[in-house]
Computed example of a mutant assay.
Amino acid sequence: MRFDVITLFPELFEPFARVGVTRRAFESKAVDVRLWPLRDFAEDTYRRVDDRPFGGGPGMVMLVEPLARALGTIRADQDAAGGPRLPVILFSPAGRPLTQPRVEALAASPGAVLLCGRYEGIDQRFIDAHVDEEISLGDYVLSGGELPALALIDAVTRLQPGVLHDAASHQQDSFSDGLLDCPHYSRPEVLGEALSAQLPGADAAVPPVLMSGHHAQIARWRRQQQLALTWRRRPELIDAARESGRLSKDDEQFLKSLL
């Protein structure tokens, strides 16, 4: 898959492609991230990409012309590569929240053009003409679209075949089945006295069921932990799972016991 990123700060992406489990996908070009510095498409001496807003007010607005040139160059490059014309995604507080189902849909697609806005915003005429989707990471404002773009690329890339050491790993992630993930434990089985003192409020021992070797009981415990954690922290996800038919009779019985 391919991501074309229009950005004023390409240097933010370069270290990201060299670290972590997703690095393999970038090195093999299983996920091809192409950076398009927006100032390269400004034609004046000062390489200006923004100007004051009509109507007054604070901040600057990103100009149509450099954006149009950048997108035109990307389209020509996509056509030369024989690939499809990818949809344009703008990161904006006005966008729909990025969710795991949307990430999974993107992971199964050929990719996208990611438009990283800055300043007060982007000239609405460019948005109306070329943007296919607006995405938000949440109800807060960032300095630009680069961090959301990195988050989206990471979330999509880790779902690509061969990226994670265990292909089933992402299937147990939070939100993969509409619920939060269950707690996880590793060695030591029992914390020493000194370490326990550093972790007040935590049980010293791993839950016995996880040491039992009884796979059905372990699966049941993990499911109940998922339900309990989601019910406490994100009850709206329980409602959504119920509406979509993802809760079994055993799930519903356990939720009643929590009440």
Rank of each mutant, 00 (worst) to 15 (best):
A129V: 09
A240W: 03
G95D: 12
P110L: 08
S248E: 06
L115M: 08
E134K: 13
D166W: 08
A25S: 09
P53H: 06
V33G: 03
A241V: 05
E120H: 00
G121Y: 00
G83M: 04
R223G: 00
A219E: 15
F91C: 03
R34I: 10
S92W: 05
V21D: 09
R75M: 12
L38M: 07
A197G: 11
A168E: 14
D32A: 09
I74W: 03
A194L: 14
V88I: 11
Y46P: 04
Q172I: 10
P10C: 12
W231Y: 10
A205C: 02
W231Q: 15
G82P: 07
D4V: 06
M1E: 02
P15V: 09
S109Y: 13
Q225M: 08
V64R: 11
K256W: 12
L90S: 08
D32W: 09
P110H: 11
L258E: 11
L12M: 15
F91P: 03
L147V: 12
G55Q: 09
L152D: 01
A216W: 04
A228M: 14
L237K: 08
L63A: 04
R34T: 13
Q160C: 08
L147I: 12
T7C: 02
D4N: 12
M1R: 03
D51H: 01
L8D: 08
H214M: 07
D44V: 04
V113H: 06
Q225T: 03
V156Q: 04
I89C: 01
A129Q: 12
V103R: 09
I153T: 07
Y140K: 01
W221Q: 01
T73E: 15
F9L: 10
S244Q: 13
P84T: 12
L152S: 00
Q100M: 15
C182Q: 15
E133N: 03
E243I: 09
T73N: 13
A204E: 09
R96S: 14
I89K: 06
G72I: 13
G83Y: 09
L98N: 10
A151F: 03
L98T: 11
G72F: 11
S244E: 14
M1C: 11
P10D: 01
D177K: 13
P84A: 15
V88K: 04
D44F: 10
P53Y: 06
E134R: 12
A17G: 09
V163K: 02
D166G: 05
S92F: 05
G95R: 08
R222I: 05
S28F: 08
V64F: 14
A80M: 12
G57S: 05
P93T: 11
A167M: 08
Q160T: 07
A228S: 11
R23Q: 15
P110Y: 13
V206T: 03
Y46M: 10
V33S: 00
P58V: 04
P183M: 07
A30M: 13
Q217L: 14
E189F: 12
F126N: 02
A68W: 09
Q100W: 13
P87G: 08
T7S: 02
E146G: 07
R234G: 02
R85K: 13
F26Y: 15
I218F: 05
